[in-house]
Design a protein around this nucleic acid. Sequence first.
DNA 1: CGCGCTCTTGACAAGGATCAACACTAGTGG
DNA 2: CCACTAGTGTTGATCCTTGTCAAGAGCGCG
Lengths: 237, 237
Amino acid sequence: MDMSYQIAVGRPPQSTPSLATHAEGQARIASAGGALDALGTTVTVRKDVEIYSQGDAARHCYQIVSGCVRTVKLMEDGRRQVGEFLLPGDWFGCEALEEHDFAAEAVTPVVLRRFPRHALETLAERDARLGRLLFAIVARELRRARGQVVALGRKTACERIAEFLLQMTQRMPKDKTGAIALPMSRTDMADHLGLTIETVCRTLAVLRRAGAISLSRANLLVRDPVALLAVGCATRH
Amino acid sequence: MDMSYQIAVGRPPQSTPSLATHAEGQARIASAGGALDALGTTVTVRKDVEIYSQGDAARHCYQIVSGCVRTVKLMEDGRRQVGEFLLPGDWFGCEALEEHDFAAEAVTPVVLRRFPRHALETLAERDARLGRLLFAIVARELRRARGQVVALGRKTACERIAEFLLQMTQRMPKDKTGAIALPMSRTDMADHLGLTIETVCRTLAVLRRAGAISLSRANLLVRDPVALLAVGCATRH
DNA sequence: CGCGCTCTTGACAAGGATCAACACTAGTGG
DNA sequence: CCACTAGTGTTGATCCTTGTCAAGAGCGCG
């Protein structure tokens, strides 16, 4: 079987099986062969620099090699919504119709593979596997966006944060203690979860005091995944 | 040019040009010809009956002929989120990966065209235009979901309702006075907008008193689209 | 060492939720 | 045809989660 195009669902299977269905894996393409490689160019972007703006014509789409990217919608009055955080292996920008509706910015220094959309489309029409891959990427994005809709529409601050921490723990590489380094600031988290920085801080403090996590700045260790999963956030008060 | 597959963006061009970009048109397929017609079967569903459940294997996808459909996510404790309302011409269920993450239910009596997904996929691999159509449908869904994320994450109750009313006015057929008949209940609206019924009622009352709309039960007339667009919802109090 | 970040915590305000009562409408059956 | 009932919508009173405003703590960097 030709593996030059493949979708890996989830990271290398690691721990926490109860969350397996949450592992909204990244679609990636094995670098081995494929006409795709010839189309891409490698780009590096410094921290906090914009990759494209909202409203830009959608000429390229991207796959992350290393680093973390956020998608951002800015309202005229300055309110900000972070759509999602993207990690190595993740694709973004593929789904744009004519123009990008969100901007993309580097959360950390980032290395990307950049592909011209029209070339990708042309190739996809000759190679059905690539077509399926692109479709799966967008379908996965849609599922993730809908999960966020449920979180923002119907979950409490505590539930949103617990869910977010679990997701990040699934997606990020762990050190030997099982801890991860959150790449984004409190502001980014707040704007992703539809909260304020202060609420994020306070809720993290509650979870820490409850013994569910330990956290100092960026360094996060989920001590009690079950408690986080169960978050009616027992400490209702 | 072969028109058997086409994406019509927006309804027959009707009024309110300032919102043209909002008219997140429905992707539809002209009934004239196309191998697609042979694949579809017509289905009717009574009001409030489920078309598929969340968790169901995704065997079919659908296009609405008449009526209104909602997609619904139900949490274990009964909290409910309505993903979107779908109207004639709209597709749904195409984006599912393995199983549907939301249920689909008839808001009103509904007539559907139902297509087996695997047959659609097979056909799409031979006919690039159908492939592009399916991709565009999912991309459009994704854009809509992201708009909802911004609304739920960063907009006030009043802004969400104003935006919703404008969208519905764009998408629904108007009578000679320019009014529309909202197909869904207050509960559905509330669960779509991440609010309670009471807040929906009260906010509608505020907008009515401000002269921006007139509304009795389901009958809605937007009297002052500019005011609705501008909603900082002046009546902050 | 001190400046400028981001993060944290506290006090208070407010938007929206909850609880409760009532109004309106459509449907049902006598 | 009317009365009754159940469901949906509306409005009021009150509560609570989260936002706002403010001050301080911790950390990185020149």
